[in-house]
Simulated assay, not measured.
Amino acid sequence: MSKRLAPLFFTTGLIISALARAGAAPSNPDRPRFARVRAGVRDLPAAVDRLSRLMGWTPTYRGDDRVMFSTDTAPLELDAATADSLATIVLSVDDVDARYRELLKRGAVSMTAPADRPSGCREASVQGPGALTLELEGPLAAPPDFSFTELRAGTGEAPGPEDTVKVRYVGTLSDGTVFDGSHRAGLPAMIPLASAIRCWSQALPRMKAGGRARFVCPPEMAYGREGRPPKIPPNAALTFDVELFGVMH
């Protein structure tokens, strides 16, 4: 079965957030809610076939001049038009490189190869139907010695990169020395992921509230060549045992 890729947002000059599912009740009834994205294509049958093959999306409505796709986050509408709409569909994925290779195997034409961006994410893009661009966005590539082990699966919410997490954790050096932990205060810690070390910003979004995990952070994903004396020496790999209690937006 083809894997479905979930759109995060779409751009047509301006970025339109589609994080809220279409059809969900708006928090403020006086505010308009996001409904769907519409793009025009000159060859509608070819565009539908290409999106279905690349994305694994199945049309929920198919007419002579309009086709609707119900994706995981926001509906996409393709209309028969005299000119192709210039737009970018940004897809949120866990592994940009793996998804990029998968799209190329399905016949996609590369536009930009996977690369880390200064904004703190990894991106790649391929040509979509018409003038559409399909862009992949995900976490920065982790070094090969980064490891994540789930000790107990959570059933609650997974944090996003800008969220604050409520956790209980213990951090140890490679020799087992404990250098930090929430146990020192006797209460769970509140950690903003936007200001956390890179290892945490990549590992915590893989967890769900109620879960426990252990992750090993190579120096380049922690405190690097300088370390954090006197507790963390230079070029130190760090191991964290973390229990996630909750997520705050």
Rank of each mutant, 00 (worst) to 15 (best):
S2G: 02
K3Q: 10
R4Y: 00
R4F: 01
P7E: 10
F10K: 02
F10R: 05
I15H: 10
L19G: 15
A20V: 07
R21A: 14
G23E: 12
A24F: 03
S27G: 05
N28W: 04
R31E: 13
R36C: 12
V37S: 13
A39Q: 01
L44P: 09
A46D: 06
A46N: 06
A47E: 01
R50L: 05
L51S: 08
S52K: 09
S52A: 14
G56H: 06
P59E: 02
T60M: 04
G63F: 04
D64G: 10
M68Q: 12
S70P: 03
S70M: 07
T73E: 11
P75K: 09
L76I: 15
E77Y: 03
E77D: 09
L78K: 08
D79K: 07
A83H: 11
S85I: 07
S85A: 14
S85Y: 05
L86G: 01
V90E: 05
S92M: 07
A98K: 12
R99V: 14
R101G: 03
E102L: 10
K105Y: 03
A108N: 00
M111P: 00
T112H: 00
A113R: 11
A115P: 05
P118S: 11
G120A: 08
G120R: 08
C121Q: 10
R122G: 12
E123A: 11
A124E: 03
A124C: 05
Q127S: 03
Q127I: 01
P129Q: 00
A131G: 07
E137Q: 13
E137W: 01
P139V: 10
A142M: 13
A142V: 11
D145Q: 10
S147G: 04
F148L: 07
G154Y: 11
T155W: 02
E157Q: 15
E157F: 04
P159V: 12
E162S: 14
K166A: 06
K166R: 08
V167Y: 02
V167L: 15
V167Q: 04
Y169N: 05
V170M: 08
V170F: 02
T172F: 05
T177K: 15
A185K: 10
A189P: 00
M190L: 14
I191N: 09
P192N: 13
A194Q: 13
R198H: 12
S201L: 03
M207S: 08
M207N: 13
A209R: 05
G210Y: 01
C217P: 05
P218C: 06
Y223V: 12
E226L: 15
G227L: 07
G227K: 06
P229E: 10
P233H: 04
N235A: 08
N235K: 03
L238Y: 09
M248C: 04
